[in-house]
Write a protein that binds this DNA or RNA. Structure first.
Lengths: 210, 210
DNA sequence: GCAAAAGTGTTGTGTCTACACCCATGT
DNA sequence: ACATGGGTGTAGACACAACACTTTTGC
């Protein structure tokens, strides 16, 4: 049996992402990701949630566990990273840095942020995770801005609507948004049909026979 | 700072999968997954490889870290699970149990095996991981048997070949397999073009504009 | 010639992109 | 009327599933 005094520190870290002002932003605590050491009796996920407190994401999932013995030069420390997503209309306290303009972060925290963004970008395409970045109700062009900021490339509102409605991810609420001062047809309001994550694009190409 | 005598044990576990005799099998150490406690100076991945020794998988990737404080009733123990894949033509020592006929495993090891199988099934569809389950050279029907065992459903040899060749995942070696005693056209031999994992099905539906 | 196994041709379907066009509002 | 923003119609590209058909072998 290993000497219990010679065990690594274990921290849980959160990459909490939100789109605001047309930019994908990450929550920072100074030059660190929020998080801290795992306590007895809690899971990694509850540790992450404890450190986030009231800044509760609409979706949380595990990303990866980093174990390079030199990742923290001070001490032997493992880090389990989580991805958290916050709807665009919530204003939460804290330091929200654009992911494209990160300050220098401690240890491997910068790499962990990019891993979180990569996971989000992939899942926006084949799941309904968008629900965790969007307000409860929104127009297609508002949703489009969120997708553009998160994906980092242009998205056609026409096709975004059709893809998500065809898949049953979005449904119209029946409501409408008033036109702006400059006119234009009032936009229909939509919501996500489910606020539980699900795979909506069955990309499996080697499907079971019908 | 936390009292270092009050830190959890941390083990790395391996879900090593191989197709043999038309079945997907997992390497067991008795009623446990192979693995053991992380040592100072090593990463989780090197810990896994150390415990596997000569039984070296063609592909290794991290699965997930389990942290339920009661997962091991004896002691506070985190487990980071890895997926390893071994080509069908290698005969490695050890106890290889069919995944569909697992014995009762300790703690959450059974659930971890199923998580590994789920990861494999997903990645067989949109990456070239097949290389890690297949021999260096093979016929399409040999590859088909591997896919059938791993995916758990029928796969058409015709379409398997076309999908993988179209994507550039497979290439003909030029060689042929002799016909069996019972006749039949000799089968062409193929190899995987790359033995590095890569995403081959760009399922991203919200693609950047051309 | 016949059975067996491998491989190709072809048709149909579903999902996506792109772009033209139509709709509803404010000034 | 016309500008502005929202929404629909439609055609083309592509990848895949299914299945008929052809090729190459052993007996």
């Amino acid at each position: 049996m290993a000497d219990p005094t010679n065990r690594p520190r274990h921290v849980a870290l959160a990459v909490v992402l939100q789109v605001r002002d047309g930019r994908l932003r990450v929550l920072l605590d100074g030059n660190c990701l929020p998080g801290g050491e795992l306590r007895a009796g809690e899971t990694l996920e509850s540790c992450v949630r404890r450190h986030l407190g009231r800044r509760e994401p609409a979706h949380v999932e595990q990303l990866e566990t980093r174990s390079d013995p030199k990742r923290n030069p001070q001490t032997w420390e493992l880090a389990s990273a989580y991805l958290g997503l916050v709807p665009a209309d919530e204003t939460l306290p804290g330091d929200w840095s654009p992911v494209t303009r990160l300050p220098r972060l401690v240890h491997d925290h910068g790499a962990i942020v990019f891993a979180g963004r990569a996971r989000l970008r992939a899942k926006l395409s084949y799941t309904n995770v968008g629900f965790a970045l969007a307000p409860a109700e929104f127009t297609i062009s508002e949703l489009r801005e969120i997708y553009v900021a998160a994906l980092g490339h242009d998205v056609s509102a026409t096709n975004l609507q059709r893809v998500l409605v065809r898949r049953g991810v979005l449904e119209p609420t029946g409501g409408q948004r008033e036109s702006g001062r400059t006119g234009g047809r009032p936009a229909a309001l939509f919501r996500f049909s489910s606020r539980e994550i699900a795979i909506t694009d069955q990309f499996a190409v080697l499907r079971p026979p019908a």
